[in-house]
Computed example of a mutant assay.
Amino acid sequence: MRPVLVALAAVALSACAGKLEKVTRTQAAADFKCDADKLKVRGDEVYGKYHVAGCGQKGVYSAQCLMGDCSAQRLQGE
């Protein structure tokens, strides 16, 4: 039973990570006034932290999902 729970947790985390990256890309596109497909998004070693670059700009974002509602915010000074 335990291996099944571990596998389900891994799948849930990877699905959540995909949502976090998507919401980060969308927010950065709005902030940079740039097409989302022109941005490079790289996950950090810290879960939910992303480095975004494109259209001559770059920034660091923190993303989270709470009860299915995902959001990303640009971190100041990074």
Score class of each variant (00 low, 15 high):
49 K>E: 00
66 L>E: 15
24 T>G: 03
42 R>H: 03
44 D>K: 01
67 M>N: 13
73 Q>K: 12
16 C>K: 09
72 A>P: 08
16 C>P: 00
26 T>F: 07
64 Q>P: 00
8 L>S: 04
58 K>Y: 11
59 G>E: 00
8 L>V: 03
41 V>T: 06
34 C>K: 08
62 S>T: 10
52 V>Y: 05
29 A>P: 00
10 A>W: 01
10 A>F: 06
75 L>E: 09
3 P>I: 06
16 C>E: 14
34 C>F: 10
74 R>S: 02
3 P>F: 08
54 G>Q: 09
36 A>G: 14
47 Y>V: 11
21 E>T: 13
59 G>P: 03
65 C>D: 14
74 R>V: 01
41 V>F: 04
48 G>H: 01
73 Q>H: 06
29 A>T: 02
35 D>C: 04
62 S>Y: 09
53 A>L: 12
12 A>P: 07
39 L>C: 01
76 Q>T: 07
33 K>W: 12
29 A>L: 00
74 R>K: 11
30 A>G: 14
29 A>Y: 02
77 G>E: 11
57 Q>N: 09
53 A>P: 08
10 A>T: 01
53 A>V: 15
31 D>R: 03
65 C>H: 06
59 G>S: 06
50 Y>T: 05
9 A>R: 11
8 L>I: 03
35 D>L: 07
72 A>C: 08
15 A>L: 10
42 R>T: 11
2 R>M: 08
19 K>M: 05
37 D>H: 11
18 G>P: 01
9 A>V: 09
1 M>W: 10
75 L>P: 01
70 C>T: 12
42 R>S: 06
50 Y>D: 04
64 Q>E: 07
2 R>P: 01
77 G>H: 10
74 R>T: 00
42 R>L: 03
47 Y>A: 13
60 V>G: 05
19 K>G: 04
23 V>S: 12
54 G>P: 13
36 A>Q: 15
10 A>P: 00
23 V>D: 09
45 E>T: 12
30 A>E: 15
50 Y>Q: 04
70 C>Q: 10
26 T>N: 07
30 A>P: 03
29 A>D: 03
